[in-house]
Amino acid sequence: MALLKRLAGAMLALCAGLGAAHAEDWTPRRTVNVVVHTGPGAGGDAFARAVINVIEKEKLSTARFVVVNKTGGGSTNAINFVASKEGDDTTLAVYASNWTTDYLVQKDAMTSLQSLTPLANLIFEPALLVVRADSPFKTLKDFIDAAKAAPNKYKQAGGTPLGRDAMLRHILVAHTGAQWPLVSFPSGGERLSAILGGHVETLVLDGSEVGDFIESGKLRALAQVSDVRVPTFPKDVPTIKEAGYDIRIPLQPRGIVGPPKMSPAAAEYYRKLFAKVIETPSWKKYVEETRVQTSYIAADDLAAFLAKIADGTRNALKSANIEVIR
């Protein structure tokens, strides 16, 4: 595809975009591989491409960045691959919340996210807990009270039991004593058609999936799955805490790490690069359009943050009766 891509690029008369060389001590001399755990187009891949697009558009680096898809076992193949690149300065990886979870439940995952070189956390993906617009539930309390009165009558569409939406269900169930099952669907599209068709009652919808379902009056949001109100979400929707449930909100962080033992000079280069990325107009446009939240956590604090996420996840998994092996 490289040739065709170049051809299409030339047709667009794009500038080569080499940009002015910065007087950096260390710059990547080769193509930088950005490892993601999903196939093309899915969450992690789309995010990595969006970040690379910002870097290219804003001419933040002279190097070429390409996405490398290492699928298999959730994040397990990807993280093992990154770990095998010890000391490599031109390999990066985009992590997501399952990079923490898989290490806790899969014995084949030999590497923890914390053992990689932390570079930057870039976003949290907030979500909305939604029902169909014609649903009798107007508030989160309506739904939970109903689910308490009639256990297992109402259903939530979800994906894997390790996902953020499943965790949230579990924490809410444990906190309130209500009971409703999670019905698993493999793709976001199937989850959406299940709720739009009225086959399940509720769904946790990631910010990037919200689209215009709320504005067009197909779905109603009951609560924001976030610690603080998200500016791109409908104004009148409370956070879960504001709706009266003081629980730990499971986070969906995305950020960048490098292989273990990356050279300090290279790590410093990437840290500066990603600090610049989030300040650019292209990045702000991306954040607005996909309804994510910029949550920059610098490398120095990232290791502690990731460890905290791992602890929270471990507790949630244990209380959900999912076997934790580490």
Binding site: G41, A46, R49
Partner: peptide, 10 residues
Amino acid sequence: AATIAILLPV
């Protein structure tokens, strides 16, 4: 799917 993803930035 892969091709569209690769060509998307262009």
